[in-house]
Design a protein around this nucleic acid. Structure first.
Length: 224
DNA sequence: CCCTGATTCGC
DNA sequence: GCGAATCAGG
């Protein structure tokens, strides 16, 4: 697996937004956590909160320069990454504009967040940030047409099934076999069904009640 | 043990 | 340039 430009872009975005190297490697696929860290450093991306920090740059640390008495060969092969090869090249440039980008995977402290219960113009109940039922954020914008229909999405709403009348809320992550869309009847005038309108359009909290973290442009780390 | 990132160094 | 091996802290 080579470092294409989009893969580097994803790495950079995720790294800067605080995702761990493991998450990044997992999202990219085909690379190890070490590869991600190594690449990040080569790219000049700087260290974020690193576990090992209390170093005075001890120069007196050396590995064995010569005479590697014994090599453990290579027992360190846990996950050879049998990732599902993605036939279609994903292209992060075009984004379906109907897909929202407000994703807050960071759980807000449930402490005294005021319960807001307001009704949107379409009749949906706005969801307060304090009461997210499922913390699954909307999937990131990506190109996501599956090369061949798999049985998992046989009865689900695929990208090709999208039209003005069905809910475009993404279910799952693009690129995965069972990725599909909600497909419910939309709340008239909205790109989503009533239920997902409640997720997409959240109630505004009073000033100072909270400060939402910045949205993750890549859609956030994969939730497993 | 698990996790994390940093560093080294053979390729 | 790449990344496995290794290190070191949490």
């Amino acid at each position: 697996m080579s470092w294409t430009e989009e893969r580097i872009a994803t790495l950079t975005k995720m790294w800067e937004s605080g995702a761990t190297a493991s998450q990044i490697a997992d999202e990219l696929g085909g690379v190890s956590r070490n590869a991600v860290i190594g690449k990040a450093h080569r790219l000049g991306l700087k260290s974020r909160p690193s576990p090992v920090k209390a170093n005075d740059q001890k120069a007196a640390k050396k590995k064995e320069a010569v005479a590697p008495a014994k090599k453990p060969a290579k027992p360190r092969v846990k996950a050879p990454a049998p990732k599902v090869e993605q036939a279609a090249s994903d292209d992060a440039t075009d984004a379906p504009k109907a897909i929202p980008e407000n994703s807050q995977p960071i759980p807000n402290r449930p402490e005294n967040l005021p319960k807001i219960h307001s009704v949107g113009p379409g009749g949906f109940v706005r969801q307060g940030p304090g009461d997210q039922q499922a913390p699954i954020p909307p999937a990131p914008p990506r190109r996501l047409v599956p090369a061949k229909p798999s049985p998992e999405i046989a009865n689900k709403t695929s990208l090709l099934d999208l039209n003005e009348r069905v809910c475009r809320w993404p279910m799952g992550h693009p690129g995965e076999a069972d990725f599909h869309f909600c497909g419910e009847k939309v709340n008239p005038g909205f790109p989503y069904c009533v239920q997902h309108c409640g997720r997409a359009y959240q109630a505004q909290l009073p000033r100072g009640a909270r400060r939402p973290p910045p949205p993750l442009p890549f859609g956030g780390p994969r939730v497993r």
